[in-house]
Design a protein around this nucleic acid. Structure first.
Length: 276
DNA sequence: CTCCAGGCCATTT
DNA sequence: AAATGGCATGGA
């Protein structure tokens, strides 16, 4: 099926550092696995049009929400244009096709535990290996080909000691992962319960887990709970705040949506550093 | 070789 | 409360 979607560029999303498991099939064409289902999406020459391969019912119930189609990005764009913030305008010009995905919460908890003091390519590699080793295979047959990937392993899909495997390349984060999987097995309703909490309450609850600090808690809040007011500060964002926002970032002006703004800035910084 | 990565923890001031 | 060292490992 063909869908018309504004404010979306799937290549920018895939390179934005919020998701680690998108597979690029070819230029502007990706295979995405989430919530135990999969999506084949291709952005067409008219870049507001997308060729979508997935079950129609799954599109309505999962992937239109996954791609955050109910959020008004025109409003975000207006805020940026009217902000008078030249650096932000430049960042937005580069990454205006980025949306904040509604990703699987458990996958975000585990993924951002792995992300700390780590680089994106290695994060992707570790997560992919974990999925291959413990996740159920999922296959999508479409007119254009057969694609396969793995479902992200839940708390009960791995045995104790699973993460010790050196091949996974997890380093010192192994103990954090063992702990969170164990905790989730012992508290089976914990993950779901986070979804009913405010940003502040969810963040505080996440901070109780070993290996979850302010930055990881904010990433989980932003990408797994869609608390778009969360503003994760990592090494790149810290750097950019020190460079462009010496007088302080205008959190009040972007009240409630600062996390989306943060993502444009982060992406701009990533691309800039990539060139060097 | 060194420096760094979507940081956090434990320890010391 | 704030500063500091250590941490596993691969990318650049």
């Amino acid at each position: 099926m063909i869908k018309k979607i504004d404010h979306l560029n799937i290549k920018e999303v895939a390179d934005s550092g919020q998701c680690f498991r998108w597979k690029e099939i070819s230029e502007n064409e990706f295979f995405v696995t989430a919530y135990g289902k999969c999506l084949h999406i291709k952005q067409l020459a008219d870049d507001s049009l997308f060729e979508i391969d997935c079950d129609e019912e799954e599109w309505d119930s999962i992937f239109s929400h996954y791609l955050d189609l109910e959020t008004d990005y025109n409003h975000i764009e207006e805020l940026i244009i009217n902000s008078g913030d030249e650096h932000l305008k430049e960042a937005f010009a580069l990454g205006k096709g980025i949306r904040i995905l509604n990703q699987d919460l458990w996958e975000m908890i585990v993924s951002y535990l792995i992300s700390q003091n780590n680089n994106i390519s290695r994060i992707k590699r570790s997560i992919q290996l974990i999925c291959e080793k413990a996740g159920k295979k999922i296959i999508l047959k479409t007119g254009s080909g057969v694609y396969e990937n793995y479902i992200f392993p839940g708390p009960f899909d791995v045995e104790k000691g699973f993460f010790d495997d050196k091949l996974l390349g997890l380093g010192y984060r192994v103990e954090y992962l063992e702990e969170i999987y164990e905790f989730a097995r012992n508290n089976p309703s914990w993950v779901e319960s986070l979804k009913g909490l405010s940003y502040e309450d969810a963040r505080n609850e996440l901070l109780k887990r070993k290996g979850v600090g302010p930055k990881v808690a904010d990433c989980i809040s932003l990408f797994g709970l869609h608390h778009i007011e969360a503003f994760p500060i990592d090494t790149h964002v810290k750097q950019l705040l020190n460079t462009y926002y010496k007088e302080g970032f205008p959190y009040e002006y972007f009240n409630g949506v600062a996390g989306i703004i943060q993502q444009y800035l982060f992406y701009y910084e990533l691309q800039k550093n990539r060139k060097k």
